[in-house]
Write a protein that binds this DNA or RNA. Sequence first.
DNA 1: CCTATAACTGAAATCGATTTCAGTTTTGAT
DNA 2: ATCAAAACTGAAATCGATTTCAGTTATAGG
Lengths: 331, 331
Amino acid sequence: MKIKDIAKLAGVSPATVSRVMNNNGYVKHEKRQAVEKVIREVGYQPNEIAKSLKNQKSHMIGVIVPKISTETASRVVDGITKVAKQHNYQLIIANTNLQIEEEIKYLKFLSNKLVDGIIMMATEVTDEHKKLAQSLAIPIVMVGQHVEGFTSIVHDDYRAAKLMIDHIIACGHKDIGFIGVDPKDIAVGQVRKQAYIDRLHEAGLSINLDLIGIGDFSIESGYKQMEGLLTRGKPTAVMAVTDHLAIGAIHCLHDQGLSVPNDVSVAGLGDVKLAKYFSPPLTTVHYGFKTSGIVAAEHVFNMIKQKQVVSDKVVIDFEVKIRKSVTNLKS
Amino acid sequence: MKIKDIAKLAGVSPATVSRVMNNNGYVKHEKRQAVEKVIREVGYQPNEIAKSLKNQKSHMIGVIVPKISTETASRVVDGITKVAKQHNYQLIIANTNLQIEEEIKYLKFLSNKLVDGIIMMATEVTDEHKKLAQSLAIPIVMVGQHVEGFTSIVHDDYRAAKLMIDHIIACGHKDIGFIGVDPKDIAVGQVRKQAYIDRLHEAGLSINLDLIGIGDFSIESGYKQMEGLLTRGKPTAVMAVTDHLAIGAIHCLHDQGLSVPNDVSVAGLGDVKLAKYFSPPLTTVHYGFKTSGIVAAEHVFNMIKQKQVVSDKVVIDFEVKIRKSVTNLKS
DNA sequence: CCTATAACTGAAATCGATTTCAGTTTTGAT
DNA sequence: ATCAAAACTGAAATCGATTTCAGTTATAGG
């Protein structure tokens, strides 16, 4: 069923059918009714592809995520879908599985008139990314990393990590370990570590390289890095750069017969949904990932509407969640 | 940059450019080179929308999920993206947020030539769904619920729940509670409960309505239902219909000063990623959701290729994970 | 050298909508 | 009754690709 068929059935021209479908231009009442009747009867729905081509608008926005099956990503996507729905937009999801070349590939592909805007959850942002993204005609917003020249929705990772460390120090800990990830990931790998280092310095605590372990994003990695720390030194507290890492670390501690937080305190970052149900409930910081998604989408739609690309940096609130996995040595 | 521009720059017709882009038909070597050179230099990428219109193929498949920010959904989607990538397809995600009308809406919308196939994670499937879905010309596969007349990828919920109950009974429990969800959700709400009831019967155990609680899918609901059970009776074991429910229940037990599994055993269903890191590590059954996604996608692509709709029921393996949250009374 | 076939090329139709434009009918004010 | 403005309508162009079709050039076999 195409518009021509409807036109024939209703005894009008395709132009008229289009006019009633989109409610613009003049259509005599009776013809409108006739057309609406036919549409109802045959359940006509216009071909969205043809509409997109003619209108030069796809009503879709592209979302590039590193790994959709991750709590962070799916929460961001959740937020995006919420506002996309309000604008009657659909999402095209591109899952890169952490492969950077894929990001480039999708950036190119999606921008070919396929989508009206792109939201990208970037991990590592290379110059190639920037150059490519800048050359695209459609709005792009970055989530999770600040990228110069682009609207970026970020959390204040530095301050979040800093506050966490502050809390640990305030609890009287002096031998504070750190479990991080590859510095290629700016926000998680670099910034959070820098906060750790700076804070220890400022507090007059020395930095013990033996108490620093760098892994990947898996729970198992947290376990392994904790094992490493334990063979090399004796921390009374450890800050992990993600909750998963923290959970792995706690598990390792338990396996070694150590109590958390009595023997060793552990803090995470991210506040995974189940974090508060762990034992001990994980002390961590809550990032509003869904909010990031919402804000990112709102920015994209603003840019689509106003046809102008504003470069902006939005910092989303976080909240330190003090639970039970860090103990106060002083009390 | 459109194909015409490239044609002009290369001194050929659009037809020739199309031929080199798609590698079909005859093109003289020199012209091909000229065209390729221009394409390279200007970084030409064809308009995907126009291609879709002409080719009557969008190279996209639609995925309708109840809630993307759920571990189940995102694992299924993860699997789908994996095989979509192999076929060079993109995903359009429609997030219904558990609203059935939305499912209908998206089913209609997506099918308008926008996508070549649909994968639907259905919860409740009404007659309207079936009628609509059957009227669509494109392949549809259902995930998570068996729907008559459609290819459905399911887990054997009945057998999974049955085996879990068997395990609990084998551990010597007699007062076995149950925490479930609304029966509108066939697989989770109805089938799993039926398995519980049947199994207790078969084992000659009486069914105590006081030990049955029905909530929703939240952790909090698990907590509340457990509270209810405790005021009404004294179970030595409880099977919850999801891990989240189980986790909520365990939390409640802890808050009441009861030990799991020494005082009360708790089993879940689903094997959330963090389940094994809980204390006690949760006894549950692992569903291969990512596999479901993979299989569903493979079926869709088969149907797309062969242009014929086969109705099929595929049962994905599960695995009972016996960990520590259910104790053996006999030993 | 001739001719049948293969190799090559571009003009034009097509996919299914929207929109302009030019033309026709209605309406309302005088 | 007249006429300008408003209301209405459909033919045709358009969006950016692909493909058929008809025509031209090159190749090879006899």
